[in-house]
Every structure is written in structure tokens, then in C-alpha cells.
Nucleic acid binder design. Structure first.
Lengths: 207, 207
DNA sequence: GTGAGGTCTGAACGCATGTTCAATACCTTA
DNA sequence: TAAGGTATTGAACATGCGTTCAGACCTCAC
């Protein structure tokens, strides 16, 4: 496989941006071609059809998230040994994983918006991870996930992804972009402090 | 089997559903007309254009939320007198305001995800209300909104709306629809219990 | 050199779209 | 009953869409 700046990859990246920003139907083959500085015919030549192009984009993005989920699972396993040790610091957020101008989060947003089945599957992976975390820490006496851990895990995920999906309106309200590098700390700090409320008094005492 | 609404309202409701479910571009005038059991020409006759129809839908939905916000503000004022009295029970969620099959939440979802400016304005109203609530209750010693109340208010809003925006995937994960009448209690209960973590020990003691 | 095979273009095609318009049906008011 | 406005239709139109295709261009192997 060749380097990633081939014309074919350039077309995919251009369509990634347009699909994410404007939606699949609104992004036309002609404008994708213009953005990638090629002819419309070449787009079809490389990807067979507009649907084929979308599939390639999906694959690309889902691959990234799958890899990420794998890393998170590994990190989770490693963490399982050192239980009770600053769990708050390990409760990472989606938003911190990608640079502010990356098209990855906007594209995920689009996939979730269109209820893509595979986006759901990715989400389910993160849900399982979160729920597992809550239960394990509960059993270790570190954390109280409330009366309904499954719903609690879903709510935490909803809050995290709500930040991704509502990035624009939230920036409006707060006066800063909570997902941009400059704002992620302020956003993340409060997420942590809200999460920390679930820690048991014992765990709170030992920072 | 036609409804007893006027033809014009029937067209608007049909397009409301289609816009919400499939997006503005994907919902064609012809299919809207078919859903409303009229001819394509009549749609344009009543609303001038497809854009005019969208504007009418926006107006309809935004009107509903404006009215709701007004009611919430009134309720908030009334509550201000009886401060400290079961604040948890008054922390309502978006999702509980509409029946499960109403197109209102799906349409709001669509507006938020297309970054409609007026949807942002509506959201800002709810944000201001939430933030005001947090600050007032903090000053009354009932609640601790954490180190950054503005971000906290935004995060709570993100969680609430995250439920709306991710309804499909969440239903998948949880095995029940958290926004349907049968599931809203279970979802709402955990939202309450998470919110209750912010109450100060004094307030917690007095149910 | 020459031909094969991939890359790339731009015009063309068929189709679905939003919109227009003349014609018809319905309903009110005089 | 007559008139006039509104509601409604369905065919027609222009436009932009995804896609096709013949051919030009490039790059190697022989």
C-alpha cells in the first residue's frame, strides 16, 4: 500500500470533511471533486460510486475508533491491577482523543445522526467499557454508581457524546469551544469533578 | 384515512415527520405530498416553496419550545420562594415534556444537529435557566455546583440533550427506549440521583 | 519505439428534483 | 343562479444530480 497522500486518499479526505459538515446527500460528487481538485469522473473511477465513497469513509473512521477502543481496553486491563489508585484521572473523554480541527469527531457525529448501525456498534463498545469500569470500581468499594449502573453508564456516555454532538451550541453558550485544545481542560476538569462525586468517601480521602 | 386537521396543517405535520426522520434534503416534496395525500403542486401552493415549508416547521417547533421555556421560567420564579424544598424533584428533563411518539424531539434533534441558529437560541434559554438554578441554589447553601458552574450547567444540558440526540443508540445499549413512556422513569430516576450528588449534606438529610 | 495498463478529463446521458402553470373542482357570497 | 375566489390537480419545465464513456495522458517493461 502506498503513502497516504495519493489522489485517492485526497478524494476520501475531501469527502470526509464535506460529508461531516453538510451531510451525505448535500455533499455532491462535483463539489467533492472540486475540493479534491480532480474531475467528477475520477471520484467514481476510484470508488465505484458515491455510495462506495461513503463506505470508504465509514471504514476509515470506524477503523480509527476500533483501534482506539482496543487501546482503551488494554489500558483498562492494566488499570485493573492498580485498582483504587486515582481512578478519576483515568476517566477519559472522547473529546480529548482528537485534535480540535480533525474531521473525525464531526464525521462520527454525522454517523450517529444518521443512526448508522456500525456507529452504534462502536458506541456499544464504549458503553460496555464504561459499565465494566463502574461495576469493577463499585465492587472494589471505590465508587458508587448509583441505583442503576447501566443507566448511569449510558448517562455518562450521553454527557460525553453530548459535548461532541452539541459542540457548536455549547461553544455559543460558554463563550469558548469546549473541544478545542484551549477549552478542553476547562471542560474536562468539570467532567472529572462531576465524576468524582460518585467516589466513595474513602476513595475521596486519598488523592 | 385522513386526519381532521386542515390540509395545510396536514402537509406541515407530514413534512415535520419526514424532515425529522430523514433530513431536509432527503425528504422530497413529492414524498411529503404523498404522505399528506395531496399533490406536489399543493405543497408549494400553500407554503410557497420547500424552504417556506421548512420555515413553517421551524416556527411551529420553536413556538412550542418558547412556550415551554416561558412556563419553566414561571415555575422557577414560584420555586424561588420555597427554596431548599426538594430541589431534586424540580430538576426536570427535556425528554419528559413530550410523549414518546411526538415528532417534536426528533425535529429538535434535527435542528440542533444542523446547527440552526434559532435552535441555539432556544438552547441558550435553557442554559441560562439551568445556570441560574445552580447559582441560586448554591447561594442558598443547598447545592454545590462544583468549581465551574457555567461548565457544569452546560454539561448537565449536554447530558439531558444527549439522551434526546442519542435516543436510538441508547435504546440499543440499554434494551429499552429511555424516552418512551415505559422507560422514562428509569432514565429520569438515575438522572435525579446523579443530580442529587451535588446536594450539600444538609439538604440531603431533609427529604 | 511500442504497446499495455493505470490515471485522469470533460462532455454526455438518464433521472429525480423543485417549481410553474393552465385547468378543474369546490365553496362562499350576492 | 351567477360570480369569484380558494383549493387542488397533474402535466410540463429547467436544473442539478450520479453515473457513463471515449479518449488523452502518463509510466513503465520489453
Amino acid at each position: 500500500m502506498r503513502s497516504d497522500l495519493t489522489t485517492k486518499a485526497r478524494i476520501r479526505d475531501a469527502s470526509l470533511r464535506l460529508f461531516a459538515d453538510e451531510g451525505f446527500e448535500a455533499a455532491t460528487v462535483r463539489r467533492i471533486a472540486a475540493a479534491a481538485e480532480v474531475s467528477p469522473g475520477l471520484v467514481v473511477h476510484h470508488y465505484g460510486s458515491k455510495d462506495g465513497l461513503r463506505a470508504a469513509c465509514d471504514e476509515h473512521i470506524l477503523g480509527l475508533f476500533d483501534g482506539l477502543l482496543g487501546e482503551a481496553q488494554v489500558a483498562d486491563q492494566e488499570l485493573a491491577a492498580a485498582l483504587g489508585e486515582e481512578p478519576t484521572q483515568k476517566f477519559g473523554s472522547f473529546a480529548e482523543l482528537f485534535p480540535g480541527d480533525s474531521p473525525v469527531l464531526p464525521y462520527l457525529r454525522r454517523m450517529l445522526l444518521t443512526d448508522d448501525e456500525r456507529a452504534r456498534a462502536i458506541l456499544r463498545g464504549w458503553y460496555d467499557l464504561t459499565l465494566g469500569l463502574l461495576l469493577r470500581w463499585r465492587d472494589a468499594g471505590v465508587l458508587d454508581p448509583g441505583p442503576d449502573p447501566q443507566v448511569r453508564a449510558a448517562a455518562l456516555l450521553a454527557m460525553d457524546l453530548g459535548g461532541v454532538l452539541l459542540r457548536g451550541p455549547l461553544s455559543d453558550m460558554l463563550g469558548f469551544d469546549p473541544l478545542a485544545p484551549e477549552g478542553i481542560d476547562r471542560w474536562g476538569t468539570d467532567m472529572y469533578s462531576l465524576f468524582a462525586l460518585m467516589l466513595t468517601p474513602d476513595a475521596k480521602g486519598t488523592p
